[in-house]
Structures are given as structure tokens and as C-alpha cells.
Amino acid sequence: MPNKKPERSRAGAPARSGVILVDVRDPADTPPTPPGDPLPGTVRTIDLQVRLLDENDRRAAENRTFLQQRGIRALNFVSSPGAGKTTLLERTLDALAGEVRCAVLVGDLETDNDARRLRREGLPVAQITTGGTCHLDASMVARGLAALSLGEVRLLFVENVGNLVCPASFDLGENRRITLLSCTEGEDKPLKYPPIFTSAHAVIVNKIDVAAVLGFDRAVALTNIRRVAPQAEIFELSARTGEGFDRWLAYLRALL
């Protein structure tokens, strides 16, 4: 079986065919093994057994330590888009103004509208633009924290990206996860998206000012929430009118 391919050799050395070949290819440029069935016996297997969220959990633990050392309590607000996270935070910040120093991190896909709505005198606010990522992760929050001046701050509010699925898997290092459900979304949301409710410390049923008009069945909603999140404290309130806010503010003060 004659081998027609010219033999390669070290630079300048004459090959047996008499043709001098100079190989100047960078070894890094050598093309990878071409696709096709591998030769038997050449495949190697490595067992990894790595949790893909380990890295996020590690960074979340760092955030938690960072916040704890500064005496800051952090809350992570999650919900579908439009459930009222920003409105809730606006009213909460106004109610706590002059009493508790707060700071805010807002995650958003593209715009900084929410961060502008939340701007207040003396309040550190940072916008985290995720550029399409549908949730905040712990490293984004770490960068947000580095951008804020946190002196004297006691409460950190993190408004997550509006999404009921993905944020459930990403610990940010918060002390409390608060899931919002608004009356406009229907009573069965908790049953359709259990993990985000299961992992919540508290569930806020927002927009109760329009519940009656919408024919929202409170009892059914509460039963569904308790079913998937028996551990969660439940607040029924209106971020627009302020109804039900006293209990919510008491919950926040009790965290300090």
C-alpha cells in the first residue's frame, strides 16, 4: 500500500522522498481531529458529577457573607412582568424614608425605566442590565453591590427580572425571597409555577384594589399558595392604594 502523502519532517530535514518540507504550522493551528467515527479504543470517559449551579451558589454565599458583615438584610423580589414589583418598592421606599436606610438593585433586560422610577434623595440605586438574560444571578448582584455606596444601609431591595421560572434556580445571596402574584394573573399561577412559590419566604398578592372587579377569587388563590408554599407568609395588599401595607412594613421592620 504506497503512501502518496509527502512525509512531514522536522524543519529542513530531507524526507525519504527527497523533497524538503518545512513545517511552519503553529501546533495550535493544527486542525482538530476530523469528525467521523473514532478509532476503537481511543475514546476516553471522565466522570464529573458537577452541579451546574455550584458556581452561582458559591458566589451567592459570598454575597450573603458580604451583606451580613455590613449588617444589611437583602430581599429578592420575583414575579411575572407587570405584577407590581417596582410600584411596591416605590411605596415601600417612601414609607421607610427617614426611618431605615435602603438601597436598590434593579435587574432589567434592556431599559433603566425602573431604576429611574426608584430614584430617591440619598438612596443608592443601581440598574443591572442583563441584555436578554431572563434572571439575575449571584455574580451580577456582586457587581451591582460593588457599584453602590452602602454605608449605613440596612435593607437592600433587589428587583429581579420579570419571570416566574428562571429566577427560582438562582440564589443571589438574599435573606428573603419575596414572590409577587397580582390579581390580574389568575388564581392558579402557584400551581403552574410551583418552584418560585416553593422557594419563597413570603408571597405578596398584589392589586387587591381591583380584585373584585376582576372576579379574582381570594380564597382559591390563598389555598393554591398554601398548597405549594406552606412555609410562606402571605400578604394581601395594593401597591397602588397602600391597602394592607401596615403588615408588610411591620414584616420589613422585624427583619432589622
Partner: peptide, 27 residues
């Protein structure tokens, strides 16, 4: 989700099903 089919209580805990792991590579 959390309802025990035997006693109907809602206190069940998840034992398995949250996995998201890179298990093995062949190369």
C-alpha cells in the same frame, strides 16, 4: 405538588428532581 396521596397533607418535601448536573464526558 406537596399533597401526600396517602394522607392528603401538604407538608411533603422534595427528595429528588432538582438535579442539574454535568455527569460525564466522552472525548
Amino acid at each position: 405538588f406537596f399533597e401526600c396521596p396517602t394522607c392528603g397533607q401538604l407538608c411533603a418535601t422534595v427528595k429528588q428532581g432538582r438535579e442539574l448536573d454535568l455527569v460525564r464526558l466522552e472525548m
